[in-house]
Structure formats: structure tokens, C-alpha cells
Design a protein around this nucleic acid. Structure first.
Lengths: 121, 121, 121, 121
DNA sequence: GTGGTCTAGACCACT
DNA sequence: GTGGTCTAGACCACC
């Protein structure tokens, strides 16, 4: 479910954190669910456990997951999940639109691109 | 016309290169036009001339500008400008759509966001 | 009467010990009273009996409770209860005041906060 | 200005972050001021640079400081400084009051303690 | 077994 | 020189 792009400028721990966040916000991972342990995920992805640790620390800091010492990390019960999802979406799109405008792309041109790239829906 | 975001993970020289590229591809800067000199732009942006130099080197490498010794840097005559522009746009959008899907955003939901954020047009 | 905060950095056994200590020092639990058994409390709080055991061991070590083999744990007869209570209070407040000073909070400002937060009384 | 308590349960990086935050919120360190470099502070406190790095990362995440690559870390221009200070104060006091109540301390008793411990002011 | 912290050392990008 | 990231290995506390 998680893939790492070593060419990407975004640090690995952030790639992981973003991916897990997306899974939580999209509802693919339910609240109270236990996440894979730091060590097991490190083995699975063939990276250092500290990197996973850092990713999980970010998510905890954002209030998305909580650790239980000696047991593991769990997904928080979120009351504002829908709102967070929308926020994340907005933030992402704002950058996009900004770049698009600089490239001189018209609104409908971009809308068409999005429609096309998104595929069946 | 060019702003630097020191918070941004993208290196400064690349921010500048991207911005100039956008201006060229969008037609805001016409072919054969002379770009600001390395030194003057460095002063204007209050950064090291080496950084501007690196940005211009990137653009030259991409075939977007060409240097004339002792005179400055100029915008190339591009036959495939439209194509390049579309490529840049596609590349940008592909990442976006990928993220959007991971967040579980539907196609029309995203289209609506884009329409709204893009503003009048 | 006892709640566990899994988010808290303080270890669980210490949370329990502190809570029981507070109940004893505040007079909510009288001397000679029998405490709930390790097992029953473990069940009630849904945690490992070892953790309760460790909490009780701490309290015994502090001279607040004493175990009777085969019967259970009991609250000690304390001659210096008032003094202990004041000590615990002092210790707690010292940290607080230190932090408050670092934040540049004035004495009266803090006094007002305390009054307000404490509520009726 | 910064002291580390190795006995403290609070991790070192957090002790540092809290201390710097307090200095910023109390106005002891003005906006736009450059903080000591990661390496220099590490030497001064005789700890690993990574620990300082982590502390600074926390502060950046909170929006209190911002890094400039190759130059250093700087204090943000905060519009809501007063509000943040009050929040930090409230948060700190809430825990205190909670503990105090459990110990059976009356409101005026606690107010008196605070007044006394706070010293001249 | 779990997460959390710290250290040490290396590498990279930017100035 | 600066900050940022990653790895490796160790230790601790908790369950």
C-alpha cells in the first residue's frame, strides 16, 4: 500500500506520513485500527525504523494517530475528518492552481485536463 | 515578477528557473528578449549571484534561453512552445490527481474545486 | 475513580499510584481501609495486573499502604498526612511557577487564572 | 539561558523547545532574531546536534521559527503572540488545577501558595 | 514484543 | 559555514 520514491525531493518519512494520512482521511483505515509496528513496517519497506518512527511522530503531532506504549500506534477517533480531508485537498489544489495560472493555462483548459486524467468517474 | 519562498523545500535556483520558464512558456516574455543580468537580478532578489547563474544554466540546458558572451542571456525562438507548455502542465497535474485519488476525492469534486479556486475565467 | 491517560508520558503504574496517593492524602480513602485487589483493579481498568502490582509497590515503598499476605493491601495510619499533602502540593506548584515565570506571566495574572480555573469555591 | 535536566522525564529536545518557546512568547527574543546555530548550541549544551535539530523542528512545526537554508533559524513575526502566550499558560494551569483538586486543596489555599511561591511582584 | 529517545556519523543542498 | 535528512546502533520504559 505504501511506496517510496527515492528520487523525490520530499523526505521519505514525509512520503510515508502523507500516504498514511491519506489512507486515514479517505477512510481506507478506520479509527481505532492498529497501524503496522514501527519495526515491521521498516522491514517491509526496507528502510530504517527511525524513519518510520519519524513519520508516525508527525502523524501523532497532527492528532491523527496515538501511540500506546508497548502496544503500538492507533488511528484516532476524528470528529472533524471530513473537514480535515477538505482542508488537505484545498491546500494541495491551491498550489496547483497557482502554478497553472503562471503557465497561462485557462480555467477550462485545466478543468478538462483534470477530468481527463482522473479517468472514469 | 519573481518571488522567493525561503520556507519552500524547492531550492532557490530552481524556484527562479521554474518561474522564468513559466513566464517564457506563458508568452509573458517573448523570444529574443534579453533577460535581466545575473548581477542585477541577484541585487533585486537580494540573493547570491551564483544562485541566479545556476538558474540560468538550467534554463540554457533545457534549451529555453541562450547566453551571448559579454551581452547577456536571451530567450530562444521556440517552435514547440505550445507542446512544452502542455507537457509542463500535464506533469504537474499528474501528481495532483494521484494525491487527490489517494484522498478519496471524486472527479467532479476535484473539478469543482479547481473551477472555484481558479476564479473568474 | 481512576482514569488512565494512554497519551500521557507518565507511565501507567505511576498514574495509578499518583491517583491513589491523592485519594489517600485528600482523605477520600480512610486509614485501615482495604484497597481493591490487584486483579480486580486490573480487570476494572482493563490493564495488566503487573502494572497494578507495580503501582501498589510504589505506594508501599512510600509508606502509604501495607500489604497483608493472603488478604490484600491496606492504607497506613499516617501521623504526618497533612504535612505530606502540603509537600506534594508544594512540589507540584514549584514547577508551575517556574514555567509561568519563564512565560513572563505576572504574579497577579497567574493568581487570577488559578482563581478562575478552580471554579466555585 | 537554557539548562537541561537529565533526570526529567521530558525529553531533552522538548525541554529545549519549550525553553526557546518561552523566550519567544515572553518577548525575551524578538522576531527576526537569529537563533544560535544547531551546531553551536549543541556544543554549548554538550549534546548531539540532532537533538537541537529536533527541538528546532518542533518550533518550526509550531510556526514559531523558520529556517533559511545555509543561513540559520529565525524567529517568526507573530501576529497572535499574546494569544499564544495565554494559550500556553492556560494549558499549563489546567493540569495543575486538576491535580490540586484531586489532592483536596481548596481554591484559596492554592491561590495563597502561588502568591507566596511567585515571590515579589 | 512495543514505542521513545539519544548518539554518532555520513551525505546533501544552499550561501 | 548553515540546516535537513537518513542510517545505524544503543538504551530505556512499558506491556
Amino acid at each position: 500500500m505504501i511506496t517510496i520514491d527515492y528520487q523525490n525531493r520530499k523526505p521519505i518519512y514525509e512520503q510515508i506520513a502523507d500516504r498514511v494520512e491519506a489512507m486515514i482521511l479517505s477512510g481506507a483505515v478506520k479509527p481505532q485500527t492498529q497501524l503496522p509496528s514501527v519495526r515491521s513496517l521498516a522491514v517491509e519497506l526496507s528502510i530504517n525504523p527511525n524513519t518510520i518512527q519519524k513519520a508516525y511522530a508527525c502523524l501523532e503531532q497532527e492528532g491523527l494517530i496515538y501511540p500506546v506504549k508497548g502496544r503500538g500506534n492507533f488511528v484516532c477517533q476524528l470528529s472533524d475528518m471530513e473537514e480535515r480531508r477538505r482542508d488537505a485537498c484545498y491546500k494541495m489544489l491551491k498550489n496547483l492552481v497557482e502554478e497553472g495560472k503562471q503557465l497561462g493555462i485557462t480555467r477550462e483548459e485545466m478543468v478538462d485536463y483534470v477530468r481527463h486524467l482522473y479517468g472514469g468517474g
